[in-house]
Computed example of a mutant assay.
Amino acid sequence: MPLMRWEPLREIDSLQREMNRLFDTFTNETSVESTRESFVPRAEIHETSDAVHLKLEVPGIEAEDIDIQASTEAVAISGERKSEIKTEEKGMTRTEFRYGKFRRVIPLPVRIQNTHVKADYQNGILTLTLPKAEEEKNKVVKVSLG
Rank of each mutant, 00 (worst) to 15 (best):
L9V: 09
R10V: 10
R10S: 12
E11S: 11
L15H: 09
L15F: 13
E18N: 14
R21E: 11
L22T: 08
L22C: 05
L22A: 07
F23P: 00
D24L: 05
D24F: 07
T25D: 09
F26S: 08
N28E: 12
S31M: 13
S31T: 15
S31H: 10
E33V: 12
E33L: 13
T35S: 15
R36C: 08
E37Q: 15
E37A: 15
E37L: 15
E37G: 14
S38R: 15
F39A: 10
F39K: 03
V40A: 08
P41A: 02
R42W: 05
I45H: 06
T48S: 15
S49P: 01
D50A: 12
D50N: 10
D50C: 02
A51T: 05
K55F: 04
E57F: 15
I61W: 02
E62D: 11
E62Q: 14
A63W: 12
D65M: 12
D65C: 08
I66T: 04
I66D: 05
I66H: 04
I66E: 03
I66S: 02
D67H: 14
D67Q: 12
Q69N: 01
A70R: 00
S71D: 03
T72Y: 01
T72K: 05
A74W: 03
V75G: 00
I77Q: 01
S78M: 07
E80F: 03
E80S: 08
K82S: 06
K82Q: 06
K86A: 13
T87H: 09
T87R: 14
E88P: 04
E88V: 10
K90T: 13
T93I: 15
T95P: 04
E96Q: 11
F97L: 10
F97G: 01
R98A: 13
R98I: 05
G100F: 08
G100H: 04
K101W: 09
K101P: 02
K101D: 07
F102T: 02
F102V: 04
F102M: 06
R103S: 14
R103Y: 02
R104Y: 05
P107G: 11
L108T: 07
P109E: 14
R111A: 12
R111W: 03
I112F: 02
T115W: 00
H116R: 10
V117R: 01
K118G: 00
D120R: 11
Y121S: 04
G124P: 04
G124V: 08
G124R: 03
L126H: 03
T127D: 09
L128F: 00
T129I: 11
T129P: 00
K132P: 06
A133P: 05
E134D: 10
E135S: 15
E135G: 05
K137G: 06
N138R: 06
V140W: 05
V141E: 14
